[in-house]
Simulated assay, not measured.
Amino acid sequence: MFAIDDLSDAIDVTREFFTPIDRGQWLRLAVVVLFVSSFGAGGPAFGGGGGNAGVVTDDPVQDDAPTGIESDVPTSQLLLWGLIALGIFLVLWLGYEFLSAVMTFVFLESLRSGEVHIRRYFGANTGRGLWLFLFRIGLGLLVLLLLGVPILLIVLLATGGQGALTVGSVLAFIPYAIVVGLLYGISMQFTAAFVAPIMLLEDRGVLDAWGRFWATFRSNWTEYVVYLLLVWILQLVIASAVWIVAGIAAIVLAIPFVLVIALLVIALGPLGVLLSIPVGLLGAVFGLLLLGAVWAPIASYFQYYALLVLGDTDDELDLIPDQRVAAREGTAEWRDRPDEDDPTTRPDEFDDETGWDEDRSQDDPDDERDWGSSSGWDDETDNGDETDNGDEDGSWR
């Protein structure tokens, strides 16, 4: 089964991608992973907390409460600042989601080419990222609608005296919410793992790519079910270990920043508090980069695994054919595989030891190389019928 066999192949491909270690490339990939990995704000989150304000009760303590406190609260200003804060949050969240959508294709391009170029790949995939961003927002709004409407109905019926807010109604809503959330999670994961590569490979829109993937999924649904189960299990096991390691590393990294902040506050007082803000922000940036660097090989492995499964179930959707062949044939690093269109890199025409074409005719009139007196043509030969190669092993230079 491809979904099982590709687990080991993904390890080989990931190892080749990260070796030899390039610190600059690893750092750039860490930045990309911060946007595409699930440890960040990977999906829409909407908080809905409501208090008892405005609910009329017969509690004598509340009825006898001083009314002067209510008049001292600037309700309009609080509402205004609350809306401003909400607007800033939405703008920042939408900006992050857009960057995350474009970075998905930057990540795929990097894995396919073996080189991480953020600005180059970002500019080339802005349009695809926009369509993916809109699809994710639309899917999130649909899920919000599917979950929000039943909750609103239950609350309205309960506050209207219909007695709908019971244990039975809550227990009936929980499995429904679990199913909706599960379908949403699978859709988001399949979109990033399989649909986005199809968008990149065949230059399709997100809905068109989903239709293309759906045909492959229906023909190989058992492969994708096994893939999904294995990914969930592996992510649970690996994430537990990684978060422990990352937590220890974060504590070690935070120690010097905490010491600097403490010294600034003790020595400079209020001015030290202000100066500690950029120090704290710098520490947070280093912490995020550390998290991205630790998670970069893991995120790459899971994406490579998905690409291998996709290519095995449909040859036309293979985004990494060279990496696949290199991993399964045990050949040289796939980034160094010869280009068949380049005559200087064809293995049957270019010799690695001598550096010259073994099969090239020595009588080529266009060859202007100076062979010299010791290793050129034999002066004693007649009409060039015999040659002196100059080396006992028969190789000429």
Score class of each variant (00 low, 15 high):
179 V>W: 15
229 L>G: 07
225 V>L: 13
204 R>Y: 09
219 S>Y: 06
232 W>A: 12
227 Y>I: 02
178 I>R: 14
176 Y>Q: 11
214 W>Q: 15
230 L>T: 11
209 A>R: 02
179 V>K: 14
165 L>K: 02
203 D>N: 08
222 T>L: 08
206 V>Y: 02
165 L>P: 08
160 G>T: 08
211 G>F: 11
160 G>D: 08
195 V>Y: 00
227 Y>C: 01
170 V>P: 00
225 V>M: 12
223 E>M: 00
173 F>C: 05
184 Y>T: 04
162 Q>D: 14
184 Y>K: 10
199 M>I: 05
232 W>T: 13
159 T>D: 13
190 F>E: 06
216 T>F: 02
230 L>E: 11
174 I>F: 04
183 L>E: 09
192 A>I: 10
210 W>N: 04
192 A>M: 06
176 Y>L: 13
166 T>G: 04
172 A>R: 04
159 T>F: 15
165 L>A: 14
200 L>R: 01
185 G>L: 12
182 L>Q: 13
168 G>W: 09
233 I>N: 06
223 E>I: 05
222 T>D: 08
213 F>G: 03
164 A>T: 14
204 R>F: 07
225 V>C: 07
215 A>W: 07
181 G>F: 11
219 S>G: 12
181 G>H: 07
215 A>D: 10
196 A>L: 05
218 R>G: 03
192 A>T: 14
176 Y>H: 02
